[in-house]
Amino acid sequence: MSRVPSPPPPAEMSSGPVAESWCYTQIKVVKFSYMWTINNFSFCREEMGEVIKSSTFSSGANDKLKWCLRVNPKGLDEESKDYLSLYLLLVSCPKSEVRAKFKFSILNAKGEETKAMESQRAYRFVQGKDWGFKKFIRRDFLLDEANGLLPDDKLTLFCEVSVVQDSVNISGQNTMNMVKVPECRLADELGGLWENSRFTDCCLCVAGQEFQAHKAILAARSPVFSAMFEHEMEESKKNRVEINDVEPEVFKEMMCFIYTGKAPNLDKMADDLLAAADKYALERLKVMCEDALCSNLSVENAAEILILADLHSADQLKTQAVDFINYHASDVLETSGWKSMVVSHPHLVAEAYRSLASAQCPFLGPPRKRLKQS
């Protein structure tokens, strides 16, 4: 649940008159999402009104509101027999009622949201009550392989729920002597030191190019640089560091992050930047690179990204790559990247197969709970 924001200063709310007192009302909304995959969808019983329910879910471990999704594969009634019906059901509720908006969509073979439908307002739910769409999607369109909505005969539904909580009022009075504290510009100011090479005390040599930097900042941000300058190493004695395995453009992006906490060109060089972040123990930059690479996972590059993640101990990226390969196994196994990995990294192939087997055979063990970014 997000923290209630402070109200904007009255002088910034309007260029008009300023009242002596004010009130700011925040209506709290808890948002969460749920993904439900139905394997072997074409084998569902086709009687009209037949119901399939998901397991229950909530916004978190401490949330007492429990929900589930309900599907009628062949419609709810005679009117909707040519459609799939989809509903959000409130299973248990400690209150007399709650209000919530919802959005349903289908994830296609690429994991993209399609055929989205959402409620136009927050509906009133009581325990045992459901709301949804009797005519969510035509069955003939859903079952047509050309539309790519049932890869490997799996129907994957994605649901986003927004639950309306209580409202909170914050009130106060205006004073004539309003003090406005300026925003912190530390990142910009440190970035200026790097860009202008002011007050530098060490030189970093990268592929024949020299960059002036500040030992204190490098040591504070990177345990690797800290070790170089702290001990009686040649880098500490000469205040000069030779860097041979990072390209200059990648190095500059890494230094921008060290000084400012930002990497504006990360998406263009996420793979190389991940390697640099791993070498210099820049954990936050490493996770930022993992996130960017996750966003660009595809059938063509899944094997290469899995190898990269394994090489640099990028655990979150590795998990996402394995899950992606499992979901698109029939396509990924035909790529040149996968065939190369079979020869060069057989242990990763074995890991992917083990994960695929456990996903398809849940009876082999208890269900695993899916539970950071600093």
Score class of each variant (00 low, 15 high):
Lys95Leu: 10
Trp194Gly: 06
Asp271Tyr: 05
Ser171Asp: 08
Ile305Arg: 09
Asp188Thr: 05
Asp153Val: 10
Leu273Asn: 00
Leu204Asp: 00
Gln165Leu: 03
Asn177Asp: 01
Cys361His: 14
Cys23Lys: 00
Glu118Thr: 11
Pro17Trp: 07
Val98His: 14
Tyr34Arg: 12
Ser59Trp: 10
Glu112Val: 07
Trp36Met: 01
Pro7His: 07
Lys339Met: 11
His347Leu: 03
Val206Trp: 08
Ser313Thr: 14
Arg221Phe: 15
Ser330Tyr: 08
Asp272Phe: 05
Glu20Arg: 09
Tyr24Ser: 06
Lys215Asn: 11
Thr25Ser: 01
Arg185Ser: 04
His214Lys: 00
Pro366Met: 14
His328Phe: 11
Met233Asp: 12
Pro367Phe: 05
Ile137Gly: 02
Pro182Thr: 05
Leu88Gln: 02
Met341Ile: 10
Ile137Val: 13
Arg354Ile: 02
Ser6Ala: 06
Met254Asn: 00
Ala309His: 00
Cys202Arg: 14
Ala321Gln: 01
Phe43Trp: 11
Ile38Lys: 02
Arg45Met: 04
Gly337Glu: 06
Val241Ala: 01
Arg370Val: 13
His214Ile: 14
Met254Ala: 10
Asn326Tyr: 07
Gly132Met: 00
Tyr24Trp: 15
Arg138Pro: 14
Phe41Ala: 07
Trp131Leu: 09
Val161Phe: 08
Ser197Lys: 15
Pro367Lys: 15
Glu97Asn: 14
Ser226Gly: 09
Arg45Val: 12
Glu46Ser: 04
Leu297Ala: 01
Pro5Phe: 06
Tyr87Cys: 01
Glu195Lys: 04
Leu155Trp: 10
Ala213Tyr: 14
Asn301Phe: 03
Ser15Arg: 03
Ser340Glu: 02
Leu150Thr: 10
Lys286Thr: 08
Arg70Phe: 14
Ser336Glu: 07
Lys103Trp: 06
Gln320Arg: 06
Thr200Tyr: 15
Asp63Trp: 01
Ala275Gly: 01
Tyr327Leu: 09
Val287Gln: 02
Cys23His: 01
Thr37Ala: 10
Ala61Met: 03
Arg240Pro: 05
Lys180Arg: 03
Lys268Tyr: 05
Val332Thr: 08
Asn147Ile: 04
Met341Ala: 15
Thr114Met: 07
Arg354Met: 08
Glu300Ala: 09
Asp201Trp: 00
Asn62Pro: 10
Phe41Thr: 05
Phe257Trp: 08
Ile106Gly: 05
Cys203Asn: 14
Leu311Ile: 11
Lys115Leu: 09
Ala263Cys: 09
Ser344Leu: 07
Val349Gln: 14
Trp131Lys: 02
Met233Pro: 14
Val181Gly: 10
Met48Ala: 07
Ser226Gln: 15
Gly128His: 03
Leu308Gly: 09
Lys81Gly: 12
Met254Lys: 00
Glu253Ser: 00
